[in-house]
Write a protein that binds this DNA or RNA. Structure first.
Lengths: 201, 201
DNA sequence: TGCAGCTATGACTGGGTGGTCACATGCGGA
DNA sequence: TCCGCATGTGACCACCCAGTCATAGCTGCA
């Protein structure tokens, strides 16, 4: 959590610090990112930064939270619009894609976050993942009850697959992954590799 | 490529350098791994290392190659034993799992490799991925011709999914992923989420 | 005017890194 | 015995980093 001093700052100065920090954490992992470079690019003194934040990690977590709050504005639409699980999933990833196009730097920040291994970040990430797994499997059980989803599959395994593929998709938004490719990938998960008896797709 | 000097070394000394390097590169990414620590743990002088290798990257690539040569001994069985694509894939990941259990350090080295971003490693990794994609889609087209695989799916998308899930599986061998969970995950990819008309599994 | 308290500063500390080089050592052959 | 060459060495260089602290400046109140 930033110190009060940071929030007392005139808006423009505060914003410029945020922007430079976003730039640095978008291009580098937490460990490789350089506080020294951030303060140089802001034109403020090193010591000032420590008037605003406890340490590098404090700044980082603040920036990550900023990024996720922006992203939330996009992806939450997926859970508001009704529909079954396939539509929700498609909408979720589609909104993520839009977010990545409209806020490329913030998108990179959220992305790098999951690769962090420094300090206690590993545990934090683990907890976040577990929370997501609970959410996901709840949705999934619902869909199974509705007869939409193959009941023979292990929910944990399904989450594992979606988590892995979701991360890979998001990693490559804007590079290899566009809207059409996104649909193709989701179809693979939906229909599975094995040829189907009835209509294949 | 190591210098000739390295191969002139008595076997025990060469091996001890390899082992310490494997240890360091198993626990750290290329960038975080410390040459200084490797030479300290070996009990040799910093300068000696530069008699054997051009630089840190040279040593790293040599170690990665060592790891992959060992891994190849395992996974190539998947392509030797006949069977269609689902059996091949299952055997491939099962052999990877065995490799990770029998050579945990080498396994971690191969794993970290894909996360490297330093220097020209990014391009190398890109090329390796492209080569894998070609191999995979060739197998896939074969399977489609045999009527085993859903012909409506985009081969590039299928590769994308398997690559992502494969990496996640291998990342977590020994932690979350055991033999039973591996089967469950592969079933998700095989059958897809959507409920099937006939026998579900 | 003077004091109090918040804010700004940047030189400095202690620690890390990859890589170098002048020198030392050991060994095989003449 | 002595030379020449391959090998070994570790102090040293230049560079980077996060974090500190004594000092200075500012602002508003009494």
């Amino acid at each position: 959590m930033p110190k009060q001093t940071f929030f007392n700052l005139p808006f423009a100065k505060r914003r410029s610090i945020e922007e430079e920090a976003i730039r640095e954490f978008a291009e580098n992992t937490f460990e490789r990112a350089s506080l020294t470079k951030i303060v140089e690019n802001c034109g403020i003194a090193k010591g000032s930064m420590y008037q605003y934040f406890e340490d590098k990690l404090d700044l980082y977590l603040y920036i990550v939270e900023l990024a996720y709050e922006e992203k939330k504005k996009y992806v939450q639409r997926a859970f508001e619009t009704p529909g079954h699980i396939f539509e929700t999933l498609e909408e979720y990833y589609r909104q993520s894609l839009i977010f990545s196009l409209e806020h490329p730097a913030l998108h990179k920040v959220t992305n790098n976050f999951w690769d962090s291994r420094a300090g206690h970040l590993g545990e934090t990430i683990h907890r976040l993942r577990a929370a997501r797994a609970l959410d996901f499997t709840a949705h999934l059980r619902n869909a199974v009850d509705q007869g939409v989803v193959n009941p023979a599959l292990d929910p944990e395994a399904v989450f594992f697959v979606y988590h892995a593929v979701g991360k890979a998709l998001i990693d490559q938004f804007g590079e290899k992954v566009d809207s059409a490719f996104l649909s193709q990938v989701l179809d693979v998960l939906k229909y599975g590799l094995k040829a189907r008896k009835g209509a294949a797709l």
